[in-house]
Design a protein around this nucleic acid. Structure first.
Lengths: 189, 189
DNA sequence: AACAAGCGCTAACAATCGTTAGTTTTGGCA
DNA sequence: TGCCAAAACTAACGATTGTTAGCGCTTGTT
């Protein structure tokens, strides 16, 4: 039940891109999934590249928006990090296909759009870094190389969609309960 | 300084596949990087698909081999996990391009080769799971959902090559020192 | 009843793809 | 020097790619 044909095309594209990758999905593949001919797509979109940009930038902006809602001062570093983890889980559930597509296919964006994406992603990472840095200065976080924390957190959070495709959605509560534990407190008892 | 032209082709292909993805690299691209014509490639390899399979399966077998060298009984769970982390770091450094290619492009393998890869990967994950399970039974590991640990560890370890391209190789010792800490003991002080 | 817009269609384009056939060049060994 | 195999080349193939042009049907509004 899509609002417009435009959105329907983008959603279907995201689904196909997730499975096969941007370059392996032809406009004819996409059209056939929608039970129309490839040329008919161009009544709704202007190019294949535009579809990719719409998908990637939508998700990237979603992340940007959410990290900016996290209070700068009030809560503890731990609470902030937990909020970020919950954001990732929530977005992963809500827009699985588009998120997977963003992760795998942003490389295929052309000049301006690729730069826009890179900018959004860097801004997100910088926000994340800043939270960790503050936490380290306050002594709430261990003395471990900061970039390694950034990397290992985001590596896990960004690829949650891989986990979600394998498991049933019943186990989401377990993910929400145990993923923060694992990332924040480790696994050694 | 490659042993044979065959290896040189595969190494160059891995490099290009890493940057642009399997489908975005044409045989003409590959040939031109080697200063020859596309048709000349076929004196050394039989198809583009064969190149991909060689790359992906080589790396997958490397991982399989290494996890089988980890003692089943002797060492503690922590030591085993540290050994696995070191393996991932070492392989990431030694065959960055091929590893990246495996992670991104295994989807484009055809039937038999894709199945071979899936089998190797599943076997690796099972070994990893078994180590964790044993650790949990011995009480060496926290009572956290096992699949979440598997996922978050492997998500980080498999994408180390992303980190490596950004940072200088000088910081590898820091990675070897702090990544195990981060993954095993968490970041909250 | 006439019109316009939305949305599908067929047909075709130029470009590029992986790959093959057949030929020439190269370089090391007899 | 002459030979042979390895490895380069040119030319071309059929298929597929993203995209455009132009046409026709449907539907709701004037």
């Amino acid at each position: 039940m899509n609002k417009s044909r435009h959105q329907e095309i983008i959603n279907t594209a995201a689904h196909l891109f997730k499975e096969k990758g941007y370059n392996a999905v032809s406009m004819r593949d996409l059209a056939s999934k929608l039970d129309i001919k490839a040329a008919s797509l161009y009544n709704h979109i202007s190019s294949k590249q535009e579809i990719l940009a719409a998908i990637v930038l939508e998700v990237a902006q979603e992340f940007t928006y959410h990290i900016n809602t996290i209070f700068p001062e009030k809560s503890s570093t731990q609470e902030k990090l937990e909020a970020i983890i919950q954001n990732h889980i929530e977005i992963t559930l809500r827009m699985t296909d588009k998120l997977a597509c963003m992760n795998n296919d942003w490389v295929h964006l052309q000049a301006e759009n690729k730069e826009k994406y890179r900018h959004l992603r860097n801004a997100y990472e910088d926000k994340f870094r800043a939270i960790l840095k503050e936490g380290k200065e306050k002594g709430e976080i261990k003395d471990v190389d900061l970039e390694i924390i950034v990397f290992s957190f985001l590596a896990t959070l960004r690829t949650l969609y891989l986990w979600y495709t394998k498991k049933t959605s019943v186990e989401v509560e377990i993910l929400q309960r145990d993923l923060p534990k694992t990332l924040l407190d480790g696994i050694i008892s």
